[in-house]
Amino acid sequence: MIKGIIGKKLGMTQIFNEQGQVVPVTVIQAGPCVVVQRKTTEKDGYDAIQVGFVDANGGKRASKAEKGHAEKKGVAPVRVLREFKIEAADAAKPGDSVLVSQFEAKVKVHVSGTSKGKGFAGVMKRHNFKGGRATHGSMFHRAPGSIGGSSYPSRVFPGMRMGGQMGNVQVTVRNLEIAKVDLENNLLLIKGAVPGPKGGYVVIKQEA
């Protein structure tokens, strides 16, 4: 089975490593998770497992559709579902648990999550443009400046960096090191920052 799990970002803190150095870590409540559905090439066109993040309140707030889906597979209702691609020969079946025990300290993982939304942001915030000077009669402050020539090409090139929605998109941070695995409380301590707010859901994957 591919090494992956769903987690909930709890926040950041710091710990000491063996050399006595301070390491900034993000604490992630990783699971316990459960396999809800096995997708196969014959039936679904690809091989994957659908994994659910086991609710603390036993799926009390799950919708009817979510309850129905879980009931059909014979597992407790879960609200957060994610898919992980697996090999066709994989023996994973609904009801199998997915735990932090698959990870160990020092390995590199990729963490994906939805970044914090910043709303409609200007070019200075969104693309790190420099802007103009604030004083001395300057009338050019946070504007983008020229976005292209008027006679030629007489159009704006696609992909021109401008203001717009910033954040609230899926972001993957690759090669983050696992600082510590807490099997007892299902916690993963990952070195560095991960996308999203506290309480946001992230997917942690270890590439083979």
């Binding site: 926040g11 803190t13 000491f16 604490v27 409380n185 916690l187």
Partner: peptide
């Protein structure tokens, strides 16, 4: 007490 506080408490 939240989980991070507990974790820090155990590391103090």
């Amino acid at each position: 007490m939240n989980i991070i506080d507990k974790l820090e408490q155990s590391l103090l």
